[in-house]
Design a protein around this nucleic acid. Sequence first.
RNA 1: GCCCCCUUGGCGGAAUUGGCAGACGCAGCGGACUUAAAAUCCGCUUCCCGCGAGGGAGUGCAGGUUCGAGCCCUGCAGGGGGCACCA
Length: 848
Amino acid sequence: MSRYDASEIEAKWQAIWENRGCFHAEVDRSRPKYYVLEMFPYPSGKIHMGHVRNYTQGDVVARYKRARGFNVLHPMGWDAFGMPAENAAIERGVHPARWTYDNIANMRRQLQRMGFSYDWRREIATCHPEYYRHEQAMFLDFLDAGLVDRRESWVNWDPVDNTVLANEQVIDGRGWRSGATVERRKLTQWFLRITAVADELLAELERLTRWPERVRLMQENWIGRSEGALVRFALEGRADRLEVFTTRHDTLFGASFCALAIDHPLVQELARGDTRLAAFVEDCRRIGTTEAAIETAEKLGFDTGLRARHPFDGRSLPVYAANFVLMEYGAGAIFGCPAHDQRDLDFARKYGLPVIPVVAPEGAPAPAIGTEALTGDGRLINSDFLNGLTVAEAKRAMAERLEAIGAGERKITYRLRDWGVSRQRYWGCPIPVIHCADCGVMPVPRADLPVRLPDDVTFDQPGNPLDRHPTWKHVACPRCARSARRETDTFDTFVESSWYFARFCAARYDQPVDRAAADYWLPVDQYLGGIEHAILHLLYSRFYTRAMAKTGHLGALAEPFAGLFTQGMVLHETYVDAAGALLFPEQVARRADGQLVHASTGAPVRAGAVEKMSKSKRNVIDPEDIIKAHGADTARLFMLSDSPPERDLEWTTAGVDGARRFLHRLWRLVDEAPTFADGADTAGDAGALALRRATHRAIKAFTDDLDGFHFNKAIARLHELMNAMAEVDEGGTAAHAAYREALETLVRLVGPIAPHLAEELWQRLGHDRLLAMTPWPAADASLVFQTDVTIAVQVNGRLRATLTLPKGMARAEAERAALADEAVKRAIADQTVRRVIVVPDRIVNVVV
RNA sequence: GCCCCCUUGGCGGAAUUGGCAGACGCAGCGGACUUAAAAUCCGCUUCCCGCGAGGGAGUGCAGGUUCGAGCCCUGCAGGGGGCACCA
């Protein structure tokens, strides 16, 4: 009996696959293509279990599709720009490039150790000038095509570190590193005009049928299309008019105030001459920039003293500056109708403003408004020419009247804002423009691309190293040759990940994209990644695909990702000692009686909540340790067992042991299998026929499960087949051929999941051809088809008997068989049968 | 605050999408093998009553629709996620 040594056979087959170039992809128009892509990782240093899960799923798809005859493209690369590299530079003094490339080398080794079937010739790292030079070239094309804008925008500013902070770096209004109170500052920044295609991005969502419904919904909400109207109010004592956006113009007669965002130009103007208003504006800034913070904060307003005149009834309305109005949305100003909007009502009650109901529920009198606004449908009241109309009718009538008198017009707005891509950081792709005092903003001449990041930078001072570099930013203006200044902002790292899938089609091509290759490979047939990218990354990539098509880098491609799968997180127990301190799993041991104790001190340990693996919770399991202890195949199998892939998976040692046990059992089955000739006649042997049926049902079910992404169910089919094999007498000669067929089927089906072991066993079963190159097994329909079915018989919905009947039996016959059953007769007793429902091959329900 | 998702045995989950609830695995219990243990193999395993045949209850809670509901509808409870400079 031979021993299953995972690390030995895994190394062996990885070398063979590599030497034979099994996973190299080439354009081949004679075969159907299949592009499977997992979201490429940020090179943080080590792969984590989330990667292992995501990439195992992708690899199963890639290997399965290959076996199904597809020409599969399955590439891997590195999303290599970003803040962690700069943090490492600041904290440990290591250069971001060095840190990043070292991390890539280690993570590449780890991924290769997992046996993923990537075409490594196509590997890309986005921080490499050979990648980002194309990004710069495309940006210039976007600039020419009018897809780029430059304007002022707010940022979080840390006055001590002299740096812009990401939202996640702002903790309770303070900078995460300095602890200084964060300010908001206005900077001139670059924007990609994603709002120009908002309508299309929204409309096309409907056709992404192979995307999860909830991702489409999240994008829909993010784009946030709303149909409404602009209303212009005259301002008393001023020549300019106040423009507000509303989706409830039907309630205009219920208006009792107007409210402006604190960033509204009118508020800014008034604040210059009003220190109390200026102080209010500053207070509001401290709430933060996120929608959640603004929405949950107490609604506060400041009466500006301005008065707006109602366009129809001429009432004079107070104008407030308010903390819940967003400058980025609509017109940055609203009118408040307290009776029919909860926020407006809260505000009106707080500041003693009138509450005028203008919509009454159908058939009801004018409602009394207490603390709850009335947001439902109804008919208009107290509203002049709108009285008696429904809400929808009133909107239409009001829009027409506003347009007729020039006090407003219909308007569609989006919650979606343009994509700000400027980042005041070093470790990103330099934005290829030059600022000249005379000529303005000049694109870097294409011949001068790439604009490379300088290597000689320091992180010993706060701020952007590019900005304080002694020479880098000083260049001659490309037009007038006078001294000018290089743009020192770099791109948001979402820019790199918005087109990498296109670059993979021809990763070394001297243009950003090889149109011929991209036309063949794109769209990505199956994209796999985390739900955390449901909105930004995917939306930006969809926008980029359109922008690239507009600038000729891609053909008329509707969408980059035809199919999307979002996998769940990997969770693990947390461990807490008596003092309440968190412990790492390797510090915890389980005693024979099941009690958790500290591995070295023996002190009792309590198991805490099961949470997403993270360093801060100390509940991480290093994939490398698992591979060393059990092998890559065990890790892969465990990742797919039990939990459905879209749901969270709890990492447990028991589960890993179970996966390993299964592989050992499979090994033993092959190792101990009797030697026998192929094709022995199995006719007439009932056990052999039953096994053959089980085998072909397993092929059918397993294949369907893979197609449906039900990996956990697919693995259950393997167990079932193995159990069926155990039931036949493998010593009986008549069963030999059927037994061998079952065994070979097991090995072939497990191939995409545990590829090394499967390849080894395939060879031991006497095959010369690599399993990786062997077509997928086909199920024999005549063996899958069942001649008899077990149907349930219910009386009044309660199960009383089960009958085995020929498949496809007529309703009347099934009914007769059911009524003839003793247990059914007993249940009916002396009651009258009123009705019998027969669902063929399923169920008979007798109603008495 | 707004939007979304989830809730099935001791545990992870399955249920052909309205038709036998609990496939498969884990854990547990019993047995075989062994001097013994590990490993392996066989059997049992939703809960309650019953020696048994059998009967009853059961998919977070409360209702509803239906011949029939884990699945559809209404309300509620609990858990989780997203909300624009992390990637």
